[in-house]
Design a protein around this nucleic acid. Structure first.
Lengths: 245, 245
DNA sequence: ACAAGCCGTTTCGCTATGTGGAACAGCCTG
DNA sequence: CAGGCTGTTCCACATAGCGAAACGGCTTGT
């Protein structure tokens, strides 16, 4: 285990996660490392072009080169490539925002989306994560797992307490989702929206991804909701089995 | 300079650039490092979750965690955030594909785009680069620089020889672009398209970005082209000065 | 069938390399 | 003007990364 590399990636991660440039002191504290150590790491990253320093405030931030690194990966990601056209088609048919997510640990990772052109409210950005039970997509995935109990419990613990999820209730919801073939959630990660989602099976049959359709709660009802669900389930059937991650 | 970190990033970069999983031997050769060295670096990256290994072929590839790293950066990028709505508006008005690029070294980096829904042909993906003179966006930027000669020469050298760019001709083109207030290019990075672009000034007045509109050569002519140019120039004026990078 | 070669992996002694404490200089605050 | 913040530099020490070499599995070619 190259500890220097591990420390370096921790620094890069901290900078990437931060919304704004960070002070050296803040980094050292956050990472529990030595001041001179972090400073030297930052300098090597600057030499390599991954980090820049605001000349005025001498604060550090991750550069676009760090973004390029990841952009190359997603462009060749087979799951995203194969599902993207289906996302586009779903978006056009339903006129709602559609998303592709994958499970990572006890969270779902937003991989791709086709947004309604004039989306008024905040939507989860690609590359962000959310606790599985906090999203319809995550629930669709959990509902297809043989014994989700432990994962559900951990996931609930990761949700904000205000959500007020309780294990027994969530397990019931998952049971319903399993029967219905889709999950539906209001008041989760996007509180204003009703999101419906269905899991996509991987090679072994275990859920490897999920597609979801999100819209304002008022609109996602009645005939329109029925239509959205038709499109969702039909698309999932059309996609069939996907390659994981 | 932490050499271990530098080597590690070189490994990650190589994996990210590669379209498919790489063998250990390929990496060592490509990077000119020791086999055991690369192997240890890969193992630490696997422990950290940035790299995965195909269990069957034992080939290595960068994981989605590497993508997440960069995704966080672009989501907070102020240039992209401020220009994105204008891109969307331009796309709707012109029904063509519009792009935002920034200059990096002697290349342009594609930062964002709003694509025509049914784009038939290959388009440059976000996060990729192209030599400046090989794109209309790059030429728009160069045309606003006081003395672009050296950069142009280097950039021509980076283009495929088939493009047949010659220094004097390109400089003339830039001069015309400077007078017109926009650059136009056919047969560049997207050979089938005509792309028109205009530079966006940064705080100092120096060009810090460029917005471009791309469409099939047949369509980008006559009245439609005139309309596209109107939208392009009006949007650039509306955006005004941008914060760099 | 055998051998030759390439693959990824592991080991281990050496020393180059990263480490962290302390000292330095610049800046704002009280 | 003094005190406490910064970010930065320095340096002796020992740790942590290095690379040559050996290992064992798998494919290739004869």
């Amino acid at each position: 285990m190259d500890t220097t590399v591990a420390k370096g990636m921790a620094v890069l991660e901290a900078l990437a996660r931060a919304k704004r440039p960070l002070r050296l002191a803040a980094l050292t504290e956050q990472l529990g490392l030595q001041k001179s150590n972090v400073h030297r790491l930052l300098n090597t990253f600057m030499e390599l072009g991954y980090v820049q320093q605001d000349p005025e405030t001498s604060r550090y931030f991750a550069s676009l080169k760090t973004w390029e690194l990841g952009a190359g990966i997603i462009s060749t990601n087979s799951l995203r490539r194969s599902v993207a056209p289906h996302l586009q088609a779903m978006q056009e048919k339903t006129r709602e925002t559609v998303m592709l997510t994958v499970p990572v640990d006890d969270e779902v990772l937003f991989l791709d989306r086709a947004a309604q052109v004039r989306a008024l409210r905040y939507l989860p950005l690609n590359g962000t994560r959310a606790p599985m039970v906090f999203t319809a997509a995550g629930r669709a995935i959990l509902s297809r797992r043989p014994d989700p109990r432990d994962a559900v419990a951990r996931s609930i613990a990761a949700c904000p307490p205000e959500a007020g999820f309780v294990l027994s209730q969530v397990l019931e919801d998952l049971e319903k989702a399993r029967r219905d073939g889709f999950a539906s959630l209001v008041g989760g990660f996007t509180p204003w929206a009703r999101v419906v989602a269905v899991a996509l099976p991987g090679p072994g049959g275990a859920p490897a991804a999920a597609i979801a359709i999100s819209g304002p709660e008022e609109r996602m009802a009645g005939d329109h909701l029925a239509e959205v669900l038709d499109v969702l389930l039909a698309t999932a059937a059309e996609i069939g089995e996907v390659s994981p991650a």
